[in-house]
Design a protein around this nucleic acid. Structure first.
Lengths: 200, 200, 200, 200
DNA sequence: CATGAATGAGCTTTCATTCAT
DNA sequence: CATGAATGAAAGCTCATTCAT
């Protein structure tokens, strides 16, 4: 159904209005700083209207964060699947995908990072499992690159974590209307990421 | 009054008990997720006891975040002042200082990053001014290195932001009781940082 | 739409339950001496139930005092409108109306007098404007009587204020179940009021 | 020690500073609307300093109200004692004394009237006893006047209460810097009072 | 889905008051 | 008397959530 490079293309996320409102609100004021009344106002629904769709505020957060991480994983897999079967090609594709996601799903990324602590234990466990799954994709590719000799970093695990930090950091300052074009940012950060894993 | 390398040494922060309790609580549950009752319990004070020392919960957050950023700036200046007057020496010192701070003042760094949005506008402005001051220290050193030819990065501003992201990221996963020794982490991340600015 | 003498007839005020509770409570213990919890108990509502209907305790006081002064003005106008167009008839009607009001709306009158200082500045200004409007009705009638020669007081302004004081005073001691019948009280105080303006 | 007409002369009340502060504060904001902290600030004392002199806020109110009513009774007695032994002379003297008191001890009168409800039951009982004693002085003189035929009012009790209301009302609007001179006000209100009891 | 009313639990903050120094 | 620290109780108000219509 999707062409090979769909992971690069970001449209409006098409979130149901409650999740869309929650995304804005949680990103701006945090989960605990957002009231259900505010969600109602932002959606144009009534407060009981919200509860018609969700059993609790927590459920909204869970739904939202799961959608976000699932989209990230999905796009990451597509990126890797569409790349040539070399560590470098796969690395470049995955990092590019990570970067695009943190640019174009900025708010989702911010909420997911900062509200992990607001998830109740069970929900948190589920979320963390998926986030770790995502991180392992990068770990594996870097390890493969090191084993094949294409990447020269002596500490692949740290490099992987550092690259993830870098990409997550992008969400905190990137603006679509800022100075840096998408392509330029990708190019520069890819260069940095390659430097980190030791690609010459 | 202080030996040259004081910026490397971290003792207990010696925070007054209320700020110390707030630091733990805000880091764990966030500003809005922390109640004044909880602060009281953690301090061993009564709720009005808290208000004897602080006029509002917001004031506690402000005091805490200002102490954190001021310590960071102070240590950064010491690090640079104590280094040789070459871009590389200054860069290494500042990055090391940033890394140490995000390892040893982990919670303060987490709170400062995630609760910026919880500061009321005036307080936020003051905080952001100091944070920008800190960031400019790194910007300038990298620019100097590029001008002198010691650093080869073609986009110093991005490199500076990337390195800051990297260091901030450390606070989110570093554990004092983890696998990685301080010295090892410093070595690895310094190598990465140098790769980012293009030191051969 | 109403019969001519409606201003003489006092039924239960038909206040919404919150205002009714506030009326009793503020009259007994004062605005600052009344807690929202007490209002809740008196209404049979919970505390948030109160806040569903009013945004603040101050808003309750405002609503209450405005209802009181508006009813007073309304009845005063009706009394004057229904009287013959002679100063004496209008004076008698207005004073009778004032007296009845301070007998049958005793608590409202007490609250309005004693809690003026508890109104926030804007609300106070609005209330005072209406109270002055009410006072001017009496002033004008007395002046008219003096001009026509029917009233002989040499200081109409003081007489007007004195009569108002007198009527307000009634609220502080009148009891429906006391010794004095309504008609007797009206007769005596009307006699006094006429003596004050100098009607022979 | 006092000359005959001392009841006419009002100096500064010479209240101890705590009572003086309480007088202002209670008059402006009411007993329940005034905090002990505010009393401390107004006196220049510390909060524990207040408690060095008074065991509770209630005690301050009691002391204040008792001083006020005692001064009123004292001056009333002096006024009557200094007057000729005729109902009219005694009436005039007592009413003049009441008027002067409500002009020159305005705030004390306001507090005493509005904070009666804030006195705890025992204290209230004591206060009411004295206030009634004061009222009886006026009652008796009017009765004497009626018996001697000098006063023609057919309802002396109501007249007495009306006159008291009138005098109390003065405290609510009189300003020392207003239009009305003391002597003018006295003259007019005495005329009114005499009209009420039916002195020709 | 909306409206309107409602609430248990809990929020931040303040009160009068106390005690050690 | 001041300073400074402290507190039980309670204040005004808000939260997430629910229910009837």
């Amino acid at each position: 159904m999707n062409g090979a490079e769909d992971w690069r293309i970001y449209h409006d996320q098409g979130l149901p209005r409650i999740l869309s409102a929650a995304l804005q609100a949680f990103a701006e004021r945090g989960y605990h700083g957002t009231t259900t009344r505010e969600l109602a106002e932002r959606t144009g629904l009534s407060v009981p209207g919200i509860y018609h769709h969700y059993r609790s505020k927590q459920d909204i957060l869970v739904d939202l964060m799961m959608l976000v991480i699932d989209e990230l994983i999905d796009r990451s897999r597509q990126a890797v699947a569409g790349a040539a079967v070399t560590p470098r090609a796969q690395f470049d594709a995955l990092v590019e995908s990570l970067l695009r996601f943190h640019m174009f799903r900025k708010q989702g990324a911010i909420v997911s990072t900062s509200e992990l602590r607001s998830l109740e234990p069970d929900n948190r466990a589920k979320y963390v499992a998926r986030r770790d799954e995502q991180q392992r994709m990068l770990d594996k590719i870097i390890l493969a690159g090191v084993e094949s000799g294409e990447f020269t970093t002596p500490y692949p695990a740290d490099a992987s974590r550092a690259i993830a930090s870098l990409c997550v950091g992008v969400a905190s300052w990137y603006r679509a209307d800022g100075q840096l074009s998408v392509e330029t940012l990708l190019e520069r950060y890819l260069t940095i990421a390659e430097a980190i894993v030791g690609i010459h």
